[in-house]
Design a protein around this nucleic acid. Structure first.
Lengths: 334, 334
DNA sequence: CCTTTTTATAAAAACGTTTTTATGAAATTA
DNA sequence: TAATTTCATAAAAACGTTTTTATAAAAAGG
């Protein structure tokens, strides 16, 4: 009683395998009666087409690949859930690969396990890899960097502008000592937000103190620890505001400040990025620059699908943030 | 310049395709010189084997499938990241399917897109589906329910015991009015935690009030709203403790209480389940029953891989929680 | 009523691999 | 040296589909 194939259905129904295939794929070239009969037999035998055979022959897997080094945090799961739903809408599945192994990534992409790929992976794919992908006409959309050629697509968030806007907002409130909480330097978004922050400082003539860029890894708990250490070091003269590279680190920062007896925003203001779902329920509700994650997810999938269908060439789309002022920021006390 | 295949490599190297295959797959039957030459040519042509051809012929995809209806929240991304890493260790990839469409699930499973499946999906797969999977000798491990037969595996968390323990702990502190914040009734874990809680109430002779089971959907923000509504309704006589079905809802509950001016644990105690990473950094740090997610992930993948290798039959494994007492719970004030 | 077109189905080729079987040359044995 | 074994490689079959081509019967046209 091995796995039944199209051949078994054909034999049982007394027709050829091409007839079965046509019946199942709804190619209307068959006598309706035959088609019905075949379908009935297939149903009775619980026949399910083998996808590997199907994929090999058709050259299509009807799967999109999402390659990422991490799925931690609200940014990713919002992205993944929205992309998944959007894929389903187009008749595709989404294959999520969580790996840092470039070998794994490239062999899955070039080996055609998926029809198109979405890549978020912080610098690991280099120019040479991209060249190889171009030669193979791989359809790809990047989420963490923009492209100027027309074979690769990208849908990015303008993190530089967001960093600049957030810093400008704090400066506008009167803050003079503003610290930045970064991720790691391989994360494009972290670096660009920081650069925007630096640009604003410069524009308004505020001095930049190297100590004021704190590594928080974009996570709540590691930021919590980093800020506690920072507070111990700078207790005499704390910044009046922290600009955190994402909402999670903003939350960790707030917790650390509270743990040391500081009030937010009474003593210190904290601003984040992304506007993840929890941000508005946090205590205090977070001021943040909204990153339209769901929109990014939808645009990405739509763009990739159209690229696969040959309806569109790769293009760079940039989404801009929106400053959401809530309770975690205030004019400085001193 | 279409995609190059094993045939192109063979032609270019002046050998047969079987020789190329043997060289690439390291079958030591070849003259070392030939093998080296073939490898060199393959490298030069940037040959990457087509996975669909490979999968069809070998009958193996070297992929495990994870089917889930949601990836929201720390429970899932911890699970997914850990499972991914563990898969990689075994030479497998992890294919994450986020869908509620049973048709999608079944056709991917029965169509052999993956070599084995891990299923978390709250009641949608019924006995009949399982029967079909058994007939097809599908290797599967369930994360949300246990099995007594030996074709399906399961690695579950003993939520009933966890609910019982947590409630008993609160009762031991002296609490008499304890509310439970549930997910939805299709979630096994939510229901079992609640049943454990009810059992403890009964055992210690505490009355059960139907109003005291509040639906929070296992999310922070919806719980926040649900508890606010609950507080408005029951302001005169609030429970002295909330047992939340998971840490996220515990956090939402705390935020809602704070928003209404209650102190935790000063006025009200709150206890959660899971011990997600943030729990210890939350303010106040959460008392919770630790759910060994990473261990569940690793056990699951290991078990499934051994089932695929034929080294093991499906079996039910149960993990037990551990009560972690932190600052969010206290003896009642009245 | 014979030829052409249409219709319905079957047969065969193809997708890109791996694996089994075949083949011929070299090495070993008798 | 003839017969056997070993070695290295090639040829062919197979995996389960879809798609292209072929075939036979029925319908239409003159």
């Amino acid at each position: 009683m091995a796995k039944i194939t199209i051949r078994d259905v054909a034999r049982e129904a007394g027709v050829s395998i091409s007839t079965v295939s046509n019946a199942l794929n709804d190619v209307d070239v068959l006598n309706p009666a035959t088609k019905l009969h075949v379908l009935e037999v297939a149903e009775r035998l619980n026949y399910v087409p083998n996808l590997n055979g199907k994929m090999l022959k058709s050259g299509k897997t009807m799967m999109l690949g999402f390659f990422t080094t991490s799925v931690s945090g609200p940014y990713f799961y919002k992205l993944i859930e929205t992309m998944s739903r959007q894929c389903e809408r187009h008749g595709y599945g989404l294959n999520v690969f969580v790996t840092k192994d470039k070998q794994v990534i490239m062999s899955n992409i070039l080996g055609r396990r998926v029809d198109g790929v979405i890549i978020y992976e912080e610098l690991k794919i280099d120019e040479h890899d991209i060249e190889i992908m171009q030669k193979d006409k791989i359809k790809a959309v990047f989420l963490d960097r923009a492209f100027s050629n027309d074979t690769m697509g990208s849908v990015t968030f303008d993190s530089y502008a967001a960093g600049y806007e957030a810093a400008k907002y704090l400066i506008g409130l009167g803050h003079k000592r503003i610290a930045y909480i970064s991720g790691v330097d391989t994360m494009f978004d972290s670096v660009r937000r920081r650069d925007g922050y630096l640009a604003a400082l410069k524009e308004y003539g505020l001095p930049f103190d190297g100590d004021y860029v704190i590594q928080g890894y974009f996570e709540e708990d590691s930021t919590f620890n980093a800020i506690k250490a920072f507070i111990r070091m700078h207790a005499s003269k704390l910044p009046t505001a922290f600009l955190a590279g994402n909402d999670l680190s903003a939350m960790g920062c707030v917790q650390a400040l509270k743990a040391h007896g500081y009030e937010v925003p009474g003593d210190v203001s904290v601003v984040g990025f992304d506007d993840i779902d929890i941000a508005q329920y946090f205590s205090p509700p977070l001021t943040t620059v909204r990153n339209p994650i769901a929109r990014q997810a939808i645009l990405t999938v739509d763009h990739l699908v159209r690229m696969i269908q040959g309806k569109e060439e790769g293009q760079s789309q940039t989404l801009t943030g929106e400053l959401i002022v809530r309770a975690s920021s205030h004019v400085p006390v001193d």
